[in-house]
Design a protein around this nucleic acid. Sequence first.
RNA 1: GCUCCCGUGGUGUAGUCCGGCCAAUCAUUCAGGCCUUUCGAGCCUGGGACUCGGGUUCGAAUCCCGACGGGAGCACCA
Length: 489
Amino acid sequence: MRKKQKKIATFPELPQAKKGEVVTRFPPEPNGYLHIGHAKAAIISREYAKRYGGKFILRFDDTNPEKEGEYYQPQKEDLKWLGIDWDEEYCTSSNLEKHYKLAEKLIKEGNAYVCCCSPEEIKSSRFNRKPCKCRKNSIEKNLAKWSELFYMPEGKAVLRLKADLESPNTAMRDPTLFRLIDAPHPIQGKKYRCWPTYDFAGAVEDSLSGVTHAFRTKEYELRDEVYYYLLDKLNLRKPLLIEYSRLSLKGMPVSKRIIKNLIDERKVAGWDDPRVPTLRGLRRRGIQPNAIHQFVLSLGISKVESEITFDQLEAINRKNLDPVSKRLYFIPNPTRLIIHGVSPRETELRLHPQFDLGKRSLKVGRVFYISKQDVNQLEIGEKIRLKELYNVEIKKITEKEVWGDYEGEKLLPKIKKIQWVPENYAELEVICPKEIFVDGAYNQDSLKTLTGYVEKEIENIKSDEIVQFERFGFCRIEKNGKLRAFFCG
RNA sequence: GCUCCCGUGGUGUAGUCCGGCCAAUCAUUCAGGCCUUUCGAGCCUGGGACUCGGGUUCGAAUCCCGACGGGAGCACCA
């Protein structure tokens, strides 16, 4: 009966794409947990590989030992949770020998040179478009210096591409290809100390690993020229570069740096704080992987820089959750309700109004709890219905309690139906994450906590399960030591 | 400062390459209604946009020029 075919957002066709011959990659630097920006990158690449029946590679771009940490495994966990699988996996750091050979080729053909100038000198000669003294060294001298380079102190020299110092594109003014780093590498340890830069490693790895379509964010656009120029000099196949805009969310920092600051300042609890758009944060908040996929797909791959509101993701999430989430009653700000003229009973309620998700049974007496918000709307003499139970006529309302009379079982038209819990309830804390920044300033109320009563049935809900508290919203239940719920729409 | 990229409703997005079928798509949001023992989901109706100014053309969201606005890069980070 519910077969309604919903339009699912898709990406546009890929240029120069042949069925079965598309190879894409996701190349994170293993220096932290994955966030929704990474998810966008991974989903775009993965999606296209799948669409054209091609191959998708996970490549760890771990070429800066100063920054890399032990995040290979956590990042893979994040990807798996997201529902991303890959056909191949490797680390750029395991290909350094190949990189050295290619560097040597560049030098031999006069396309790269060892530069011993200070960073300041390099910077100013770039700015002034003037060659430095190292640039005119002979090929023989450069080859000699290249072999010496491996034994020079850190920061003493670099290998530079001999490109175009006159270029209006600053990225083309002899970019650095290799530099010395003494910090130990998380996998390679102290085996290497001459490491390729992004410009070199990224282009070379894409080409060598067979990538046909390489996606990256817009801020790399100026480096396209370097990418193609370098591969041209190396006589390597050129993948097609495609840029898209970076994902930014309103009031929610995606940048690792800003999230780290928030953690350091104790403004958020950690990398899995529900206010933060790391995959771990989103997971705790109750955002499901399929919603993230649909969300990313709906954004497309345009280059327009935009600030997306979180409610779009929540809306998708809710729709996915609706048919599969159990319904329970939760009462925020509970107020006691005492009924006259009824005897205790046991009742069974469906866990979902349309689908068979099972039932829960409740023992009810004369005492109930209903929410303060509902009480505020009540009038003396009004008939209401305790949802799925029976009707009640309101007799008396005080600050602390409400009294009512039993008014029969028959469903009356047009009366309020409100949720309730019996006296045998469980207490529950509901965490409601809000935007971290409002008008650029930290939002003190970004993590509201609400307490209330919930049905005992909550004990049968598994940790991590998402339920819908009727007339309240969807919440993810967490039970690690402490019972808590996280509001997700 | 220089260079590059981008500019469609409140928010995203399709359309822009190859001008007409675009009095502009879809989603979300907002307003109202229907359905429903939920303020969820579903259904229906409505509001709301081609940054501006020139030009080319019978005709421009689409092409050209200029302005304005936003973003990025100018690292021995990725």
